[in-house]
C-alpha cells in the first residue's frame, strides 16, 4: 500500500487485517498490538463475526432458482443454456441456483426423465450428474439406437434424434428432440465413454409437426441449431456414416 492508502484509524487497520490488505511489517505490528490490547482484539473478532453472519445471510438464498425473467433475457434470442462448465476446476463453485435455472430451461420433459435434485442435500454435482444419460436407461437406449428422423416414446415423451455430427475433438454428438404435450426440448448430447452427456439444451412450444417433416422448432432456425455453429466441426454426418456409428454402438473406427 502507498502512504496515502494506509489505514487511518483502528477500524481501518482491523478491516485491512481481515481482508489481507496489510503489508507484512504493518500486519506484524498490528498483531503485536492485538496481543497487548484485548479490547482491540475483541473488536476484531466482532468484525469477523459480522462478516461471517453477513456471508451466511446472503448465502442462504443461493439455491433459489434464478428469476425466470432474468433467464428469459439470456435465452430469448437463443433459448439455449450450455450445461458444459468451461473450467472443471471451478466445478464446485457452480451455484445450485444457476444449475437449477438451467434445469428449468431444459424443461419439464427432461425433468421428468432425469432425477434432478435441487433441494437441500442435492448438490450441483448431482444435477450435473443428472445431465449424463447413463447406459442402461431407456433414454440412453433410444438416443443410441434410433436413426435420425425416427421416433420412440420414452417415459411419456416422443424422442426423435434430428441429426448426428462430430464436435471439434471428433466426439460423436446428436441433436435430439423431446416432445411433451406442452413443451418441446431440444438437446445436444455427446458421447462420454459409454454414456451421453448433455452439452446444450433449448426449449420452446411444440411445433405443429407434420409427421416425418423436420420443421424447425423455433422459427426458421432453432436456437440449438444456431448454437451448434460453435460446436460442430463439420457438416452433419450422412445417413451411411450415422448408420455405421449406430452399428458399432458409437465406437469410432
Amino acid at each position: 500500500m502507498t502512504e496515502r492508502e494506509r489505514p487511518r484509524n483502528d477500524d481501518e487497520w482491523l478491516s485491512a487485517l481481515i481482508d489481507g490488505e496489510l503489508a507484512p511489517d504493518d500486519e506484524a505490528k498490528l498483531r503485536a498490538r492485538l496481543d497487548r490490547e484485548p479490547e482491540l482484539a475483541a473488536r476484531l473478532e466482532r468484525m469477523r463475526s459480522a462478516d461471517g453472519a453477513l456471508r451466511a445471510a446472503l448465502d442462504a438464498g443461493r439455491d433459489d432458482p434464478m428469476p425466470a425473467g432474468v433467464m428469459a433475457l439470456l435465452q430469448s434470442d437463443d433459448k439455449v443454456v450450455s450445461l458444459q462448465r468451461p473450467d472443471p476446476r471451478r466445478f464446485f463453485d457452480l451455484p445450485l441456483a444457476m444449475a437449477a435455472s438451467a434445469a428449468l430451461a431444459v424443461g419439464f420433459v427432461l425433468a421428468q426423465l432425469w432425477p434432478l435434485q435441487t433441494g437441500p442435500g442435492g448438490g450441483a454435482e448431482r444435477l450435473l450428474g443428472a445431465s449424463l444419460i447413463e447406459e442402461g436407461t431407456s433414454l440412453h437406449a433410444a438416443v443410441s439406437t434410433l436413426p435420425s428422423g425416427e421416433s420412440a416414446r420414452v417415459d411419456g415423451a416422443a424422442l426423435t434424434p434430428r441429426l448426428t455430427f462430430r464436435d471439434a475433438a471428433g466426439v460423436p454428438c446428436r441433436v435430439v428432440d423431446l416432445a411433451g404435450d406442452e413443451l418441446l426440448t431440444e438437446v445436444v448430447v455427446c458421447r462420454d465413454g459409454s454414456d451421453w452427456r448433455v452439452r446444450m439444451a433449448g426449449y420452446g412450444p411444440p411445433r405443429d409437426a407434420v409427421a416425418g417433416d423436420f420443421q424447425p422448432a423455433f422459427g426458421d432456425r432453432s436456437a440449438v441449431d444456431r448454437a451448434l455453429d460453435a460446436l460442430i466441426a463439420d457438416a452433419p454426418l450422412g445417413r451411411d456414416e450415422e448408420r455405421a456409428l449406430l452399428e458399432r454402438d458409437w465406437v469410432s473406427e
Binding site: E5, P7, R8, E12, L14, S15, A16, D19, R43, M47
Partner: peptide, 9 residues
C-alpha cells in the same frame, strides 16, 4: 477503506 471499516464497525 473508510466505508468498509465504518460498515463493519
Amino acid at each position: 477503506m473508510s466505508r468498509l471499516s465504518r460498515a463493519r464497525a
